[in-house]
Design a protein around this nucleic acid. Structure first.
Lengths: 162, 162
DNA sequence: CAAGTGGGTTGCAATCTGCAACGGACTCCG
DNA sequence: CGGAGTCCGTTGCAGATTGCAACCCACTTG
């Protein structure tokens, strides 16, 4: 039985989000949604996604509670897809994706657009901060409890069979 | 010619990262990598991923510069997959994914493990901060230049045909 | 020498993707 | 009024991708 596999056995919040967020089109659809796109036709022409796939992905996103549909016209019933709170909460993730892509992509592929932080007026990028103390979160100051360092202490770096 | 489509035409850093990061297995492999997993066999048994798929994904991640291989044994040549700087830089993204999954998943699916910020000693989650001023990044204080608000001004909320 | 470990590759069947065409229900325009 | 256009899908089909299991190779261990 090929086709996407059920991953709940992994018992991890990342694994739980993966069925929705580990999909190229869903990510791009969300990017568009954050840019203000809301209608089927607009997603389709902007992304160049096949209509059947778009239809299926939008259904998935609605089922996942990330989008909700809202009627904007009665006569031929038309609705648009809007981000729910759960969906809006994905912004951090999109920003992180943007920052990473921007930092590591070859210059000619970089997005010329800038992200402006209106509070300070400067172009910005996301930095991971601690929800408790506001300090930066780095590989070196994080631990997963119980056990397991997020980053290994590179203990085996010199492990050449002696 | 079905199969993944080239998305570079979208000219966006998110779109550029999507071929690699918009894949369920790649995300899970990275999660494991941040937990310290480095070897083929360990990824395979931990994730339950098919061996051919794992092989192909690891190759992709190496080609993308996220992993690098390092020999740890000569005789039957054996190597492990280690995160490069580019790979390590994905931590924010994984943390954002974790936070989102944790916040919105039904309680019984939540990951019981906690993330500890060693600098302050408290369990934490990621918060998006401005790289320039350190203030929190929210939908309401961001703009994409040129044009386009990240968040719509909900101008059409009351747009009932009059 | 048989079994085990580590890291893959190969084959096959079941899905999933992408494309293009078709559909329905209006609205707009000449 | 007829034809074109808009919006949102659904349906068919060929080709790609998955998942599974089996196989292979090169040691190492008992």
């Amino acid at each position: 039985m090929p086709g996407p596999k059920d991953l709940t056995y992994l018992g991890c919040s990342i694994a739980n989000s993966v069925p929705i967020l580990g999909d190229r089109w869903n990510i791009l659809i969300l990017r568009d949604a954050f840019m203000g796109v809301r209608r089927f036709e607009d997603f389709q022409t902007d992304l160049g996604i096949a209509r059947n796939i778009l239809s299926s992905r939008l259904d998935d996103l609605v089922a996942a509670g990330i989008f909700e549909t809202r009627e904007y016209q009665d006569n031929p019933p038309r609705h648009e897809y809007r981000l729910t709170e759960k969906g809006k909460d994905l912004m951090d993730l999109l920003l992180a994706l943007w920052r990473w892509g921007d930092r590591w992509a070859p210059p000619e592929l970089r997005d010329p657009r800038k992200l402006i932080h209106l509070d300070c007026g400067h172009p910005t990028q996301i930095v991971a901060a601690c929800a408790h103390c506001g300090g930066e979160l780095k590989r070196s100051n994080l631990r997963i409890e119980p056990g397991l360092e997020v980053v290994e202490a590179t203990s085996s770096d010199t492990q050449v069979p002696a």
